[in-house]
Structure formats: structure tokens, C-alpha cells
Design a protein around this nucleic acid. Structure first.
Length: 272
DNA sequence: GCGATCCTGGCC
DNA sequence: GGCCAGGATCGC
């Protein structure tokens, strides 16, 4: 479900918990814990102080006093909720962190496409190993972006932005929005694009993600931050989910196509 | 590259 | 019952 802006919004909603200690960590029998057993992870988390909360692409990183980091990915349906009472855990609660301030964090993920894992110091973890740069990294320049794109000439623009190695954090919503803003057809292969066009894509990535974070992400169905607050970016989407309608700004009409099994929305008259 | 696959749930 | 869903990996 969540892309970079949603994960970033969740991260910010958790920042007041930095400095608290994880008293206990418990897992469901089918928790999507990877590369370590739930029992080992439970031991690695108990008694740990939460030193910092970071984000890498769509991954949320809980830095621990042991120098390890708890890594969470929310997949399609993952949510993180905080609770201060002892209300029963909702269905599909796969991890509960009981914190020293009396608050508990719940990781809820119906489809279990998410990931719960542990990284050692320096964030050694296979899930983070092949991630591309952050969109706001000073080293993520238009020149660097174009150079990475040119290594994959056969990829369509849609697929190039959706994989996580050219730039990290984009998902289906924001890829559609970025390509609308750049005025490019999502089916265009990288090889057919000019430097100018890719420079526009680079600028659009930065603009769209920044705007989405400002609005607290996009709540289509069930995305909320850890307080249960929905994001307001949906009201600003130009093309995503609007097949048969006009773009939000009224400049064109939106169609839906399918690329490698994923829906793409775009406005053919505007995106060439 | 492309489709299949991992899952559950909501909607038509 | 069928289709769709904010993701990513793994085959051929």
C-alpha cells in the first residue's frame, strides 16, 4: 500500500517515541519475519532503546541501542498503529512492540506482502542492498538519474520508475503522477527518450514526492499514519484512478492501460 | 521482459 | 464468482 510519502508520514508520526525502550516484542504465528526466526527477533528487540527512526525508500528503520535496526516494509496492505489502551489487537496483527512509555505499536498486514527483518550495524540487510538513491539526496542529480536510466534502454518509463534501483520509493500512484507531470507516455522505452525529457522526469520525481509528503500521503482506502490520520494527497492526483474522467486540472482525459500486470493511468493527448 | 505468485478483502 | 488492489520476487 504505502509508497515513500506514506512511509515518510508514518515515520514522522512515530518520532515522539524515540528514546523509549521496547519492553517486549510479540509476533503472530504467520508474521512475515524474514531472514531470522521470530524467536530470535523477539530476543534481539527486547530491552532495546529506540535511538532513531529513519526511512530508506519504502522501508522504515528503527535504530536500536544494540546497533541493530528493525526493518519494516508495509507491502500492499501493511499499517502501523499505536495504542495506549489494552483494546484487543485487530485481525492480522503480526507484531506488537510494547514500549516503556505505556504505548504499544502494532504492525497489521492482511495480505502479508510486507517484511519484518533485522539489519546489523551499517544497515547490512539484503532488502536494502540494491535500493537506488533517495529522491532528495544531493547526489541524485539529473545527470546521475539519466546515467542510471541509460543502463536500462529497453525498460518502459513506467517500469524504470517502478523498480527500486534507479530511484527508491516510487510506487504505482506516484509513477503515474510523475509521468503526467513530465508530459511523457508511460509506455515509452528509455531508449526513445531525450536528455531533456529525462531531465523533466527527474524534476517531476522531486516535485511530486515533495508535494505528497507535504499532504501527508495518499489515502485511497485504508492508509493512515500511526495516529490514524489520513493523508490528503488524493485530492491532488491528476491521473491515478481517474480512467474515463478528465485529469484533475481538466487538460486531458485519462485512460487506463495494463503494463506487466499493473494498471497505468495517463492522458494520451498530454503525455507523448 | 513477461507472467505467475505470494495473500486477504472489498466491490460489482 | 470474478476482478481489482498502494509491492516485489522468482521463474521461464
Amino acid at each position: 500500500m504505502p509508497e515513500l510519502p506514506e512511509v515518510e508520514t508514518i515515520r514522522r508520526s512515530l518520532l515522539d517515541l524515540v528514546g523509549t525502550t521496547i519492553d517486549t516484542a510479540t509476533f503472530s504465528a504467520v508474521a512475515p519475519v524474514k531472514h531470522i526466526s521470530a524467536a530470535q527477533l523477539q530476543m534481539a528487540l527486547a530491552g532495546q532503546r529506540l535511538m532513531a527512526l529513519e526511512r530508506r525508500g519504502k522501508y522504515l528503520l528503527f535504530r536500536l541501542s544494540s546497533d541493530n535496526a528493525l526493518i519494516l516494509h508495509l507491502g500492499m496492505s501493511g499499517r502501523i498503529r499505536r495504542v495506549t489502551d489494552d483494546a484487543p489487537a485487530p485481525k492480522h496483527t503480526h507484531m506488537t512492540l510494547q514500549l516503556s512509555n505505556g504505548c504499544a505499536l502494532r504492525y497489521v498486514d492482511a495480505r502479508r506482502f510486507g517484511v519484518i527483518t533485522l539489519a546489523t550495524h551499517a544497515l547490512q540487510n539484503p532488502y536494502l542492498a540494491n535500493l537506488g538513491p533517495e529522491f532528495d539526496d544531493p547526489q541524485f542529480t539529473a545527470v546521475a538519474f539519466i546515467a542510471q536510466c541509460r543502463r536500462h534502454p529497453n525498460l518502459s518509463l513506467k517500469m524504470a520508475l517502478l523498480n527500486q534501483w534507479i530511484v527508491a520509493g516510487l510506487g504505482n500512484i506516484y509513477v503515474c503522477e510523475v509521468l503526467y507531470e513530465a508530459g511523457l507516455n508511460p509506455t515509452r522505452p528509455i531508449a526513445s527518450t531525450t536528455e531533456t525529457e529525462l531531465t523533466r522526469v527527474h524534476a517531476a520525481i522531486r516535485a511530486v514526492l515533495t508535494r505528497a509528503i507535504t499532504h501527508g500521503g495518499t489515502s485511497l482506502r485504508d492508509y493512515e499514519d500511526s495516529w490514524g490520520q489520513k493523508g490528503g494527497m488524493k485530492a491532488h492526483l491528476q491521473v491515478y484512478g481517474r480512467d474515463g474522467e478528465s485529469t484533475l486540472d481538466g487538460r486531458g482525459s485519462v485512460v487506463r492501460i495494463v503494463q506487466q500486470g499493473r494498471s497505468t493511468w495517463f492522458a494520451p493527448e498530454i503525455q507523448k
